[in-house]
């Protein structure tokens, strides 16, 4: 069941690129522009989280059984994942340049048939259940692998998230780490206006999780929190990662429009310049 080549190497060079949040943002912008696709703001808000995961957290040895699992439950931000997989050398330049093209495995939402993607996602509210099952499996198999699930804050509108949250806490799945991309926006507005979830941390604590708030753009802090050892039998951990929607691009930050909107040529030039100084 080996899906990946050996990715143990800490060097993230590929074609002179390094796996940094800036590099991820650059690929997100390049590919969104080329493919004339939206979801740019949602991708940009998780660039630092994905940089931490793929740069410093996920253990991806050749042996599939020992590999950490990652579920991108907010599947609409697959481009951020593809960008990290590309910068890590798991996807080729040709593959990343096929994003949203006819006959490409790199669609708007991730497909498990693509090397490096553990689970297909896109329907919100599904990923934490899968992650809970994956974590339970690791526990039953006495494996040290960990399971990371990246959720959006609006995704927590889905009742199934809380079914999974209760299960994971009840079974003390200490090998399960959820990260909530708390960018406070959703498709049609601000989360607090649509269905209030704040204070998010209290919702998770009430469900029995070890919940902490964290700056979702601080890569070392994110990596440290994700890698924090969890004693066997302790509660599952959730990082409420406070992020800025569209982070790095001045005119996108905090703007609902950029959930779906693609960039014009002028906007693209501005965005590329912005991320150099703002992220």
């Amino acid at each position: 069941m080996t899906k990946l080549s050996d990715t143990k190497s800490p060097a993230h060079d590929r074609n002179g690129k390094k796996l940094t949040s800036l590099a991820i943002r650059r690929v997100i912008l390049e590919q969104s522009k080329r493919a004339h696709e939206g979801h740019i703001g949602s991708n940009l808000s998780i660039a630092d989280i994905v940089a931490a995961l793929y740069g410093q957290v996920l253990r991806l040895p050749a042996q599939y059984e020992d590999r950490d699992r990652f579920v991108l439950s907010k599947g609409h931000a697959a481009l951020a994942l593809y960008s990290a997989l590309f910068l890590k050398g798991i996807l080729s330049e040709e593959q990343i340049n096929s994003f949203c093209m006819d006959g490409s495995l790199l669609g708007v939402h991730p497909e498990h048939t693509l090397k490096g993607v553990d689970f297909s996602t896109g329907s919100l509210g599904h990923g934490l259940s899968i992650g809970a099952g994956a974590a339970l499996a690791a526990k039953l198999q006495k494996s040290s692998r960990r399971v990371f699930v990246l959720l959006s804050d609006a995704e927590c509108n889905e009742g199934s998230i809380w079914e999974a949250a209760m299960f994971a806490a009840h079974h003390r799945l200490s090998n399960l780490i959820a990260i909530v991309d708390a960018n406070k926006q959703q498709a049609l507005g601000y989360t607090d206006d649509i269905l209030r979830l704040s204070p998010m941390i209290k919702l998770w604590q009430a469900h029995g999780w070890d919940a902490v708030e964290i700056d979702g753009h601080d890569v070392p802090a994110l990596a440290g929190a994700m890698n924090k050892p969890a004693p066997q039998g302790s509660a599952p951990r959730v990082l409420i990662a406070n992020t800025v929607f569209g982070k790095g691009v001045s005119y996108m930050e905090g703007k609902i429009k950029w959930h779906y909107w693609p960039m014009s040529d002028e906007e693209y030039r501005q965005a590329l310049a912005d991320i150099e100084v703002r992220s």
Binding site: D118, F119, H126, S129, A137, S160, A164
Partner: peptide, 17 residues
């Protein structure tokens, strides 16, 4: 929680159960 049960089973099956 039937939705969750199905998701859990998916995660378990992917790991070999």
């Amino acid at each position: 929680a039937e939705q969750n049960m199905t998701g859990i089973a998916t995660g378990l099956a992917e790991a070999g159960f």
